[in-house]
Amino acid sequence: MTGTQLIPTERALALIGGEPSDANLRRYLHGIPGVDAVGLEQRAAALGTRSVKTTSKAWALDTIIKLIDLTTLEGADTPGKVRSLVAKALTPDAGDPSCPRVAAVCVYGDMVPYAVAALGAAHGDPDKGGVSVAAVATAFPSGRASRSIKLEDTADAVRAGADEIDMVIDRGAFLSGRYGLVYDEIVAVKEACKRPDGSYAHLKVILETGELNTYDNVRRASWLAILAGADFIKTSTGKVAPAATLPVTLLMLEVVRDWYRLTGEKIGVKPAGGIRSSKDAIKYVVTVAETVGEEWLTPHLFRFGASSLLNDVLLQRQKMASGHYSGADYVTID
């Protein structure tokens, strides 16, 4: 099907074989091969034993920085805090101008104008050297609000200049089998991402895998989100434990790989929450490279949703350059 001009919904309808009703979606999603939990975790653990050293490690560390969505999602966020975050995003390592920038800053919707203003000329596509603004929307993190509120939440962030929208799915609806509702909502939010000029903000769909509980559910939710038009599938809000895990991310990467085989279209994956060390992040880089290929290691196809990860990567990066470890006071807090 590579190269066909079907828009996502039409293609989805063709794949589902009918209207996106609960019954049709159920038939499609439950026809996807199951996941063996033991085998999946074994594979993830095996990928985690790759030994990434010297030049490979240096490349991986820089790549991780370029893939970070530097995040602050607190009730206590202020314009000042967001400006500080943006400064960190633009100049991660004050002592090393060669250090790459992160991909995006990720904030609540009402903070988008401050992030846009703080970025100024640097605001832009991370694939072209800019830093994007990502906003969480749709009554993040619970998603428990009416459809109209969620859509307005999204549209408001897009109007304010958000390049990317991180939405949450209705986990309650998903777990009770109302797949049609989840599907429709993603389609509607995607439409709310539309700008006046006809372009769309990138849509990341958060599955909140910690609440889906089984790997079979994660796989089905991933397919459902992609069928409905997600540009990215994202593991977690970071507000629910467990957040991102390596097996869950591996599983989502496998879905993305299968979608690419089926349609020729590349979907992004974003593990978020709980990835704090360079060592862990490198395991994710390895998993991406060995599952979907290295070409996925670009900002429009893979992101880390993280905050404290950046400083650990910077410390490792400094260590590689100087040969010795420094300390927490040699990287800046944002």
Binding site: S51, K53, T54, S56, T63, A289, E290, E294
Partner: peptide
């Protein structure tokens, strides 16, 4: 290529 992994 990253997948060539430096010798370890």
């Amino acid at each position: 290529s990253f997948l060539e992994y430096a010798p370890a």
